[in-house]
């Protein structure tokens, strides 16, 4: 039972990171109908920026804030300079360009920072509290809960309560009609990419210190889990992304804890296949979510 409780909290903590990352994928999918396979590399780039800033200044928090801003900026650049010019006649075009971006980013980061894992500190202790002799969760887990919780609440409010959120949703669902109503659809698309990249960077900042450290490919495995989370949730649904993230996090934690760490990636793959076979639209899809 102790073990179960510990694994559950661990799974929820990991799951929230996947949720944030899946949310970033969903944001771009909704806005641009592109699965952003470069999300992981973009997040790693932001983590490297934070790493540099923290090393130079000694302040984790300064690095943290700069990472989110770097994410925003990178999102704007990727949309304005690259993705805007992708021909949308085939859904694969965006995917191929995103994969190309992965190679460019990973190569560039490798040239600048080297291809070794560099340990990254966490702002809070990762030692779990014990309640009644049962290890439950750490201060860092609480930080993860708070950070991802804040993102979910802020995004929800942005999309449901503000004029800019209404514009973003309208532009995603009906671009031509939105333009006729005075909405700058191109601007909303850029904003969507910027927000998504910032959320992805946050996920990177949260997950990288808990694994081997920062490396040009540090987010590759996380991307697979988060992509599965997004697909489980339906790709179109922010709530689905969060629930999908938690499902994936718990599954990984239980499988690693009760069976073996090496089996965990297979469990993720099995989940992905099961969902695609049983409910191809995802558990929370509202409409025709996927074309390919």
């Amino acid at each position: 039972m102790d073990r179960f409780i510990y694994l559950t909290f661990d799974g929820l903590s990991r799951g929230l990171v996947y949720a944030a990352f899946a949310l970033a994928l969903v944001l771009i999918w909704r806005a641009a109908r592109i699965v952003n396979f470069a999300q992981g590399s973009m997040a790693v780039a932001a983590v490297y920026v934070a790493y540099s800033v923290t090393n130079a200044t000694g302040s984790y928090w300064l690095g943290f804030v700069v990472a989110l801003l770097a994410g925003l900026l990178l999102g704007v650049l990727v949309e304005r300079v690259v993705m805007r010019f992708v021909d949308h006649s085939s859904p694969l075009n965006g995917v191929v360009v995103a994969l190309g971006l992965v190679l460019v980013l990973q190569g560039t980061l490798g040239i600048i920072y080297g291809n070794e894992y560099q340990p990254v500190e966490t702002p809070f202790s990762r030692d779990a509290f014990e309640v009644g002799g049962i290890a439950m969760l750490s201060r860092y887990d609480l930080f993860v809960f708070a950070a991802v919780g804040t993102v979910v609440v802020v995004l929800t409010l942005l999309f449901t309560r503000t004029a800019i959120g209404l514009r973003m949703r309208a532009a995603a669902f009906a671009p031509d009609v939105s333009r006729l109503l005075g909405v700058s659809v191109g601007g909303m698309l850029t904003l969507g990419w910027a927000l998504a990249a910032a959320v992805g960077s946050l996920a990177g900042m949260l997950v990288v210190p808990t694994e081997l450290g920062v490396h040009p490919t540090a987010m590759d495995v996380v991307f697979v889990s988060a992509f599965t989370a997004a697909v489980v949730g339906g790709l179109d649904s922010p709530i689905g992304a969060v629930v999908g993230g938690l499902i994936v996090g718990l599954l990984l934690s239980y499988v690693s804890g009760y069976i073996d760490v090496t089996v965990a990636p297979m469990a993720i793959l099995a989940l992905l296949v099961l969902v695609l076979l049983g409910k191809p639209g995802g558990l929370f899809s509202s409409s025709k979510a996927r074309v390919a």
């Binding site: 004029a163 209404l166 514009r167 949703r169 309208a170 939105s178 005075g182 909405v183």
Partner: peptide, 9 residues
């Protein structure tokens, strides 16, 4: 929301 969209500009 549709109606508000008409006046956002």
């Amino acid at each position: 929301e549709n109606l508000r969209l008409g006046g956002l500009w």
